[in-house]
């Protein structure tokens, strides 16, 4: 590979530098934005930053496990909108008489998990690549939630669920604490459970993992269900933050989540990276979005910047020597 990005990566000593690169990018980014606009490091802005990172962080936790396996989950937006739809329709709302309180939250998370479980089952039993299986699930979820909502926006009136976004504990909204909890849970799963180890092993080399006696199919299905679980939580958080659920509640979330995971340094080929990387990736994406608003750059350009970031991060991190065929 004689291309410039590849060369730069080699110059900086490959692996070791690469694992620290995301953190360096985050720090440099924070310093630059703080110089350009000191408002950035005001406490109020930092709280706002944490608040807007809550949903992407929870989402990206789920997606990290899938990408660690070398798969992809494109159903992020569909699953999130299903979960948001379920919580809004079952809790007190302005459309029907339901008022199940926190049972609605449980049902929403369960529905997210079931969506993930179906993705996993479809992928493994029909034996089709995950990006196709989850592309289908994306639109199934989206269609279902828009249908149930009747194409309109429905308000969430349950005060205790709204408190997730409105109530503060130690200065931070509860949603942020939920996201931190999700991060800790994901970290425990990745580093201290058999499931986490198996996911990493599958990403490293699926054949070897299978030969080592791991039930690859079961691990895959569990991983997709786990991802659905995290998407379900973020659906609840998103509904609580917006105070309503509508057809486009998931718009742009897939993109932000993929960007965060990839920019954090988790390789799309699988087996490399993890939830800590993703935490840094989410912070990079959120800080950049926040900084662009502070600097007065049109928010519409955000997707463009995120797209370029995906390309740059993937190009820098892929261990391209191993791959001759890329499809």
């Amino acid at each position: 590979m004689t291309l410039l990005p590849g060369r730069i990566a080699t110059v900086f000593g490959g692996r070791r530098w690469r694992s620290l690169a995301p953190l360096a990018v985050l720090i440099v980014l924070c310093i630059l934005i703080a110089i350009a606009n000191p408002n950035f490091i005001e406490l109020r802005n930092l709280v706002r930053l944490a608040n807007s990172a809550a949903v992407p962080l929870t989402l990206a936790m789920g997606l990290t496990f899938i990408i660690l396996m070398g798969s992809i989950d494109l159903s992020v937006e569909g699953t999130l909108s299903v979960s948001a739809m379920v919580v809004v329709l079952l809790a007190a709302n302005d459309s029907n008489g339901n008022d199940y309180g926190w049972w609605a939250v449980l049902a929403a998370i369960a529905s997210g998990t079931i969506m993930g479980l179906i993705s996993g089952l479809v992928q493994t039993t029909l034996r089709i690549p995950s990006f196709m299986a989850t592309l289908g699930m994306w639109f199934i979820g989206l269609g279902l939630s828009v249908y149930m909502l009747g194409g309109s926006a429905i308000r969430l009136n349950d005060a205790s669920i709204r408190d997730l976004a409105l109530h503060r504990f130690l200065g931070l909204p509860l949603a942020v604490w939920v996201a931190i909890g999700a991060f800790l849970l994901a970290a425990v799963i990745q580093y201290y459970t058999r499931l986490g180890r198996h996911i990493l092993a599958i990403g490293g080399d699926e054949d070897v993992t299978k030969l080592s006696g791991v039930n690859v199919t079961r691990v895959r299905i569990t991983a997709f269900a786990l991802a659905g679980f995290f998407f379900g939580i973020s659906g609840v958080l998103a509904a609580a933050q917006l105070g309503q659920s509508h057809a486009v509640i998931g718009d742009g979330r897939l993109f932000a989540a993929v960007t965060a995971v990839v920019v954090g340094g988790t390789a799309l080929t699988g087996g490399e990276g993890g939830v800590v990387n993703t935490l840094i990736g989410v912070l990079i994406v959120t800080v950049l979005a926040n900084g662009m608003i502070l600097l007065g750059i049109s928010p519409y350009v955000q997707q463009t910047v995120q797209g370029l970031m995906i390309i740059a991060a993937v190009a820098l991190s892929l261990d391209r020597v191993r791959l001759r065929i890329v499809k």
């Binding site: 992809i72 993929v258 799309l268 997707q303």
Partner: peptide, 20 residues
């Protein structure tokens, strides 16, 4: 092709660039 990025990610990314 040149950056050896799988096509679904490459086009997801360029799709984001274009939408923006």
């Amino acid at each position: 092709v040149k950056l050896r990025v799988p096509s679904f990610v490459a086009t997801l990314a360029t799709g984001g660039v274009v939408t923006g």
